[in-house]
Simulated scan of single mutants.
Amino acid sequence: MQFPLVHVSWALADNTQRPACDAFLRDVFGAEAAYEILVTPETEALGLDREESLMMIGDTMVIPIAPAGRGAQAGNPLGDMLRRSAGAARWIGLALKVADLAAADAWFAGRGFRRFYDPGMEAHYFLVPRSEMLGMRLEIVKQDMPNDPRRDPAWRPAGGAGGYGPLGIEGLQAVGVSTPSLAQARALFADRLEWPDLGERELADACCAAFAMGDTVLEALEGAPGSPVACHAQDIGGICHLVFKVRDAAAAMACLRGQGLPLVGTQDTRFAVHPDAAHGRLIWLTGQTPPGYPAPGSRLGRGIVAQP
């Protein structure tokens, strides 16, 4: 089963960090807030325990989430999870869209995956835990995100001329996940999840095996012993990067340099704002499309969702 991507989420330890993180996404990537979930006296009485902004980078939803309200108290399950997940190079996970939640649950169960439901949300989504997904939490959702602009088939991100925002982003190209071995990643993504294997290639810091996840690519990265990628797989696990395709790599790099941002990587391959200046996350930009990768762009606006 191949699943359109709903969102990518990451955690912040403290809600006071969220405005600066949202501003970074707006100022650097041209992100637009589709919706903001806030703790008010009314929502806190209903048990809301976090705050988040649903940020659209092109047609990809990225959500930094911070504990708030009840979540700010030690011992709150969601707040504790966010605080555990908030370190540098850590992401929470992915949400993927299905049309029939019960059928998706049966599909995952048939492949031996554990699933969890949050109380009261059994009709909306279920979770596949990190231990099942190389450290990445997977959320399988039927519900729409609030005010998701992609629900309108006529909606297009602002930008024009084939690119969006100041960097000319065309769309999300890939999500990277660190792995102890490509064989282990292939057994999970190709064999159990049945995502098409797009082949291997060498990157500057790792060997990469790519899998078609739906409307984007999952890149599994195996690093040499002692390398940053190998250490990520051993000590953190899960998502280690995002990759956005840009219309003009030279122009995007010049834009970042013009903002005085420190960069890593190369214009000819992929480059990024150094994680120390990017709230601890690695978000690559590239002007290249590897062989076999699909053109970037969300399928949600075209009403395409996975059917078991």
Rank of each mutant, 00 (worst) to 15 (best):
R114T: 05
A106E: 04
A104W: 03
E122Q: 04
F108E: 01
W91L: 12
K97F: 05
F108L: 14
D105E: 15
L96T: 05
K97D: 00
R111F: 02
E122I: 01
R115G: 00
A89Y: 01
S85M: 13
A89R: 08
K97P: 01
Y125M: 03
R90V: 07
G120Y: 02
W91R: 10
W107M: 08
D105C: 11
L94W: 14
R130Y: 08
R84L: 13
A99P: 04
W91D: 09
F116L: 12
A102N: 06
R115C: 02
E122K: 01
I92H: 15
A88Y: 03
D118P: 03
R115E: 00
A88S: 14
E122Y: 04
R90Y: 02
A88H: 08
W91M: 14
G120I: 00
F126V: 04
G120V: 01
D118N: 07
R84A: 14
G87L: 09
G120E: 02
A89E: 05
A103D: 01
F116Q: 03
L127Y: 09
W91Y: 15
F116V: 07
R90E: 07
G120T: 02
W91H: 14
A109F: 05
M121C: 06
L94Q: 11
A99V: 03
D118A: 09
G87C: 07
A106S: 13
A86W: 05
L127S: 07
D118I: 04
L96S: 08
W107L: 11
A123H: 14
A88N: 08
R115D: 00
R114K: 13
R111K: 09
F116H: 06
Y117D: 02
L127H: 12
P129R: 10
W107K: 08
Y125F: 15
W91C: 07
W91T: 07
L101D: 01
F126W: 09
G93F: 14
W107E: 07
A88C: 08
F108D: 00
E122T: 01
W91N: 09
G112C: 03
G110E: 00
G120F: 02
R84C: 09
R90N: 07
I92N: 14
F116G: 00
H124N: 12
R130N: 06
D100M: 09
A86Y: 04
Y117H: 10
K97T: 00
R84H: 10
P119A: 14
A102C: 05
W107H: 13
A95L: 09
A123Q: 15
R111N: 03
D100G: 11
W107C: 10
D118M: 08
G87T: 03
A109G: 11
A104R: 13
A103T: 04
M121V: 00
A104C: 11
L127G: 01
R114L: 11
R130M: 10
F108I: 07
A89D: 06
L101P: 02
P119S: 12
A123N: 11
L127T: 12
S85H: 07
F113C: 06
S85G: 06
